[in-house]
Amino acid sequence: MKHLLIQVFFFFVLIMMTCVANARDVDDSGQLRQEIDFILHLIAREDFDAGIYLLDRIDNQDSFLKDSLNYLSGWVMYRQKKLEISAQKLLKVREESPVFHKSHFFGAYNLAHVGRHHDAQNTLAQIPVTPGGMHEAMQRFQISGVALLQNDFNEYHKQASHFNGNFHVMAQQERNMEMHRQRLETARTPSPALAGILSAAVPGLGRVYAGKSSEGIISFLYLAAMGFTTYDFYRGGGAGSPMFIISASVTGIFYAGNIYGSAVAARRVNQEFRYEMEQRILFDMHIPLRNAFN
């Protein structure tokens, strides 16, 4: 009887402990769920700093939960335009996660956006995709975009040969990407050296060649006026007159500056064209991602 009572007592103690442990689990998971709900609320209110602060404080060893937290952190950073950190977080999401493809495509896009083209291309190439599926088409499309950003037309053609317009989320952008390729391949990029040489021959001509016609005309008029002034001093006082020396020196400085300025203008035109094309390519890479995953 005594043994039976002891057994019954321990049985109840065991049940009590199990129940309390279960209750704590319920409590922990409930708290965690509430915490994530709250973080989502903060993010929805665009209170990103608070959201990130709380996300960083969640300490959980569960892999799936870690994926969700990395995805959330990456997404918040993406919304804050902190693309480098966003990519780091998004690319930590494991393949088992339901948001794996979204995270890795956006992670690669972020890398492309911050100029890490090679890393973006590697990341995209490593995303496992089903042949013939939307993810494969997306992978090819994104790699083609990164290839254009790198001026790698061979890689672009390799990927673009599979463009078929089957997926409406990127059909238009596939056509746009081809237009970007044509513009990049056919665009006339002024040579800074040639612009400098032209401006040495005729002041301002280098700028006109670079596509900055109004700047070129103004430069020409300024230097012509200075040249006439110098000539006037030379005519009146000779080569040794102080006014001629001062005027010729100033004109010479402006003449040399104009040559340098023409080379800089040509380089600036190239940079502006490159920047514009990069923005167009990135824009067209971004739209299918938003269409497909949001």
């Binding site: 049940i15 129940c19 209750a23 409590d27 409930g30």
Partner: peptide, 15 residues
Amino acid sequence: ICTFLCATPLIERIY
């Protein structure tokens, strides 16, 4: 019974 007695107050106490 134990779960009902222990778990519910624990969750509700939070807020």
